[in-house]
Design a protein around this nucleic acid. Structure first.
Lengths: 184, 184
DNA sequence: TCCATTTTGGCATCGAGTGTTATAAATTGG
DNA sequence: CCAATTTATAACACTCGATGCCAAAATGGA
């Protein structure tokens, strides 16, 4: 939304938006479940795409490779969408109300990933392995998005790949002092 | 809060709480910044403890070992506190309003961890490595808490350790088919 | 054109959160 | 022990997001 970007999210009331669109305030809440969801756009569709990617992944492929490819694959955006995406993400992780709401949306994302992990690992989606994997993957993805937005014009896929690499190799070896491997 | 547990978070208004405490509604908001913060208790103090742990970690210790020990170390609770803690965590990740608010609080947690990672890794706290590590660590910690609450009476430290192990070793090897290591 | 169905949006209400302000309580000073 | 000052309390009014209710407007047939 242009108004959010220009005047700030908190300063823009739902009434303002309704007025700008020439519709009733009440009608805004018919199209969007909440003020925050205006910023999130068609996240449901993206979730469905992620789910489709994960279900389509070849069974022989390693779990984490499938996941990374699904996440990177569902986040290819055309040049025309990038500007809007930047505004959205910047809002989502700078405005408190949106940071808060994001947890609910990201929870849906995690459920899709956890369900996939459970199918592959054999356990339940809410067992520790699937739960940890989905949450860590979410962390990697959001880290990539955040960093991408912060520094001007790099490649989003690149950041996603680098973040997922960190997860793939494990943090026991993430250390400036080479040679150590986590048995101190 | 006992009222939240008994009547539900949403069904309990701040007015109800004020009445139950025999104080004014406005006064509740002097003690707590928001309704959600009533559930979070003295999270600031826990953050400070985490920060102290991380700053006290020996410099020779591997980054991830320090982190795990700080997280596990700041989450040892006496038997008397466990019941209350369970209620809080169950509320925090089942009630939407609290899930939402948790993102803001967890953001503060992440900043502490990212600052530590940046000190060790040499980069900035908002560079991709520190950002990814802090978010993944948060994911592991919350996964452990969630699983611990879900299944009755296991050891929390145990769950934390298992979740951090998953992160430490990396997810490339997290696969039911042994022998694969993520190059497929 | 008339009727039925859906969409819209006005109105009222609830609850969280905040600024203002009067009052009660505690503290300080004489 | 009382007066003056400061601080904690809470009543009041208000904003804004969100929701229920219902009447008016648009849509779509027959």
């Amino acid at each position: 939304m242009v108004l959010f970007d220009r005047d700030g999210y908190d300063a823009t009331t739902v009434g303002d938006i309704a007025a700008a669109l020439g519709i009733g305030r009440r009608t805004v809440f018919r199209y969007f479940a909440s003020k925050a969801d205006i910023v999130w756009g068609e996240f449901d569709a993206e979730l469905a795409r992620l789910d489709r990617h994960l279900r389509a992944a070849p069974d022989g492929e390693a779990l984490f490779d499938s996941l990374r490819q699904a996440v990177v694959g569902t986040n290819h955006f055309g040049a025309g969408e990038l500007g809007e995406l930047r505004v959205r993400i910047r809002l989502i992780d700078s405005v408190d109300a949106l940071v808060a709401h994001s947890a609910v949306r990201y929870g849906e994302w995690r459920r899709v990933v956890a369900a996939f992990a459970a199918r592959r690992l054999g356990g339940a989606p809410d067992d520790l392995p699937a739960e940890t994997l989905s949450r860590a993957a979410l962390g990697a993805a959001t880290a990539a998005f955040t960093c991408w937005v912060r520094r001007g014009d790099d490649d989003l896929s690149d950041d996603l790949d680098r973040a997922f690499d960190l997860l793939a190799h494990g943090f026991a070896t993430t250390d400036p002092r080479p040679g150590r491997s986590g048995s101190g």
